[in-house]
Design a protein around this nucleic acid. Structure first.
Lengths: 163, 163
DNA sequence: ATTTTATGTCAGCACTGTTGACTTATTTTT
DNA sequence: AAAAATAAGTCAACAGTGCTGACATAAAAT
């Protein structure tokens, strides 16, 4: 099925093209989260816990505010899951060195282990999709998703400029 | 767009590449749903209502079972939102002609109007992302997302073979 | 006539989001 | 030094959306 004729010709976007994109996002996200959700159940956790564990693992020593900015939820919502994770020994908090009001977050060994387990499943799925689609497609995937993300958060993905 | 040339065909996928993909999906989906969620609030509805309205609009006359298959939720969960939408006149049910146990679903005018309003926001966002990324990128986006979707649902996206 | 299927309903529970009100440390500003 | 702002947390109540389990009804299939 000759792909050279690229179905979407820049300026001519039919309703069906856009709806297909919408549906792809729905189905892909649904399946992307399905497996980790199962694993989380075994720990009595939900998707919110995964997000916290993921981003803390990714940014050790981050503050609660930074985490709130990423998740875009209220501190009361975060407090619930974060509290559980701290009490159950998946995350530790230590006061900031310059600003002692801050509670810098990082994973414990146990937290890191769970993070690995959860993310492993998603990494494998993404790896499979990347491989079957090819390097060029991955580049396109990145470009389009980036375009869906609000300008502020988009810069999280800019190459090497430290934030 | 010669796909054979993919620079590294057996992609060398570093942990960071995969994590970037994971994060792109998270942020993109978060922002992709944000606007419609706001609109839904004005109607006292949630994201689940949107999904129902969307898929019923897309497949007029579909059965409840088909809808359940797509959403992958229980009938009790669906029942709640579907019931609300029916009682409030966004969706109508009529018995199937060959199998009168079925309740075929379709949008009322009011439902179609809401569907348009909601999906319009997402269509606009996808259109923007598509345009800024370019036709080739869109093709890649499709390929990768398709690879994330389970095999069974993947065929919803195969070109013209009716299912 | 019996069983299966399509659909719905009631009840209760869990997770995750919200708002609002208030507290405690600490830092910043005046 | 006093006042104000900030980082973080807490309690309470509520809403939306999943889930399981149990049961009901009508129609179709066997």
């Amino acid at each position: 099925m000759a792909e050279v004729k690229s179905p979407v010709n820049l300026l001519f976007l039919r309703d069906d093209d856009l709806r297909q994109g919408i549906e792809l996002l729905f189905f892909a996200y649904r399946d992307f989260t399905a497996k980790a959700d199962e694993t989380l159940l075994q720990y009595g956790f939900g998707r919110a816990h995964h997000r916290v564990i993921y981003f803390v693992g990714r940014n050790p020593g981050m503050t609660v505010s930074e985490l709130l900015d990423i998740l875009k939820i209220t501190k009361q919502s975060l407090s619930r899951v974060l509290g559980q994770l701290v009490r159950q020994g998946f995350i530790v908090q230590r006061p900031g060195s310059t600003d002692r009001r801050q509670r810098l977050l990082s994973l414990t060994d146990r937290g890191a282990e769970l993070e690995r387990k959860l993310t492993e499943e998603q990494r494998a799925l993404v790896a499979k999709a990347y491989r079957s689609a090819g390097a060029e497609a991955v580049e396109g995937f990145r470009k389009v998703l980036l375009g869906l993300i609000n300008e502020t958060d988009r810069e999280r993905f800019t190459p090497r400029t430290q934030r």
